Amino acid sequence: MGVCDVLDGWDDAGPNSGRVDDVRGFVDELLESWGFDAPNWSDQMPAGYEDAAGVYTRNDDTIHLNPDIFEGDASDALNVAIHEGLHASMDQMGWNDPDLLEELMAAGAGYQALEDLVQGCQNPTESGAPSDMPSYPWVSSEG
């Protein structure tokens, strides 16, 4: 499923129903296109993160998305999900010491990737599929 499909079907999917599956499916495909395993997903926020839009927990390889994000803008929900997906990819690469730099890298790369795909949606021949994504934004924490 391409991001254009998620955006186009956002109003039809209804809050917290098809929207969750669409976002999860897109991010899973995106990560897999970059060579990573799909993480687990939850619509329950862990203790201490109840007000956050999303969080990735390394101990159980799970992206937790606050159900409230699915009642708003599709791009915002996708941005949160891609951001947390990038944290999952970093974890799979062995980045075991999350810090502010990692948070900023995931935020910037996730936002830019989504913007690139959303712009492609304005071209009727583009699907915004993960195969249209740019290369994975980094290879190691050293380089």
Rank of each mutant, 00 (worst) to 15 (best):
L104G: 06
H87G: 06
M105K: 09
D91T: 02
L101S: 14
D91F: 01
G108I: 05
P137Q: 05
S135K: 06
H87F: 00
S135H: 10
W95V: 03
Y136C: 05
Q122V: 13
L117N: 01
Q112L: 15
P130V: 03
A106S: 09
T125A: 12
G94T: 00
M105P: 04
A109I: 04
P137H: 05
G94K: 01
L117I: 14
S131N: 11
D99T: 12
P134W: 11
G85H: 06
D132W: 09
N96S: 13
D91S: 03
M90Q: 00
S135I: 08
S135Q: 10
E115K: 14
G120K: 13
G108V: 05
P134G: 13
A113Q: 05
G120L: 08
D99Q: 08
G120H: 15
Q122S: 12
G94I: 02
Q112Y: 14
A88C: 07
V118N: 03
A109T: 14
N96M: 11
E126K: 05
A88L: 09
M93V: 03
M133R: 06
Y111W: 07
L100W: 10
Q112M: 15
T125L: 12
G120I: 11
S135P: 14
A113W: 02
S89C: 11
Q112K: 13
M93E: 10
L101D: 15
S127F: 09
G85D: 03
S89R: 01
A109E: 15
L117E: 05
S131K: 03
G110A: 10
S89K: 00
Q122N: 13
W95P: 01
P130C: 08
G128N: 10
P134T: 12
W95E: 00
M93S: 13
Q122P: 02
M105W: 08
S131E: 13
L86V: 07
A113M: 11
H87A: 04
G128A: 08
N123T: 08
A113S: 11
D99V: 13
G85S: 08
L104W: 10
W95H: 10
M133A: 15
Q119F: 12
A106T: 03
Y136Q: 06
M133H: 08
S127H: 04
G85F: 04
M133Y: 08
S135T: 12
L100P: 00
P137S: 06
M90S: 05
G128F: 13
G108S: 14
S89F: 03
D132V: 09
Q92G: 03
P137N: 01
E103P: 07
D116P: 00
S89E: 06
C121F: 13
H87L: 09
G128D: 07
V118G: 04
A107R: 15
A106V: 02
T125R: 07
D132N: 14
M93I: 05
Q119P: 01
A107P: 12
D99L: 03
G85Y: 01
D97R: 01
L100D: 15
L114M: 14
Q92W: 07
M90L: 13
A88S: 09
G94Y: 04
A129T: 12
M133S: 13
A107F: 10
D97Y: 05
E126N: 11
L101Q: 11
L100E: 15
A113R: 00
G108L: 11
L114P: 01
D91H: 00
M93G: 12
W138T: 11
L114H: 04
